[in-house]
Amino acid sequence: MKSRRGNAQGVTPASEPNNPVDYIARTREQYDKLGYPPYKWVRNEIPPPLAPLAKPLSEAKVGLVASGGIYRTGQVAFHYRDDFSFREIPADTPTSELRATHFAYDLTDARRDPNAVFPMETLRNLTDEGRIGGLGAHAYTFMGGIYSVRKVRDALAPAIADRLQSDEVDLAILVPV
């Protein structure tokens, strides 16, 4: 993927409104201004293997994973200090029962309409339309503001991968925030 750099402030002038914000530069600048040592980015040297989809979408079972801190009312909410737990959200959960909690993004949109960060209802509708074959029995959600690389790489991610495989989904969509 080509990356396009903005100017020194990390944003390009209004003449190029589609250029993305340079978050790496901004993060460095923020940590520096707040007097913290530089942020240590994770480096993954080996690309993940790409598994081609073996069947048409209309026959595929789709899994959903989301990092926006979504939970269902009745479940314990996430805390904000490296919470590496996750929640199972049944695929038929009414949108009205979904909640969002996270420290690192503006929750206004998610709390107004959870589909903005957790498109389960959207995917249910696509199943009804016949665009996809079906949904995994559960979606999996977590609060992605976790500073421990080890906890994510060695505990959380493998646990979710195991669940997706048990659910026998053909593909999974991960929605960040």
Partner: peptide
């Protein structure tokens, strides 16, 4: 960012984004 799957209460946009992802 807060609306990675589309603007709140905009099911047409949310649907379009999921289709593009799929």
């Amino acid at each position: 960012m807060g609306r990675t799957a589309g603007k709140p209460n905009d099911p047409a946009l949310q649907r379009q984004i999921m289709i593009e992802a799929l």
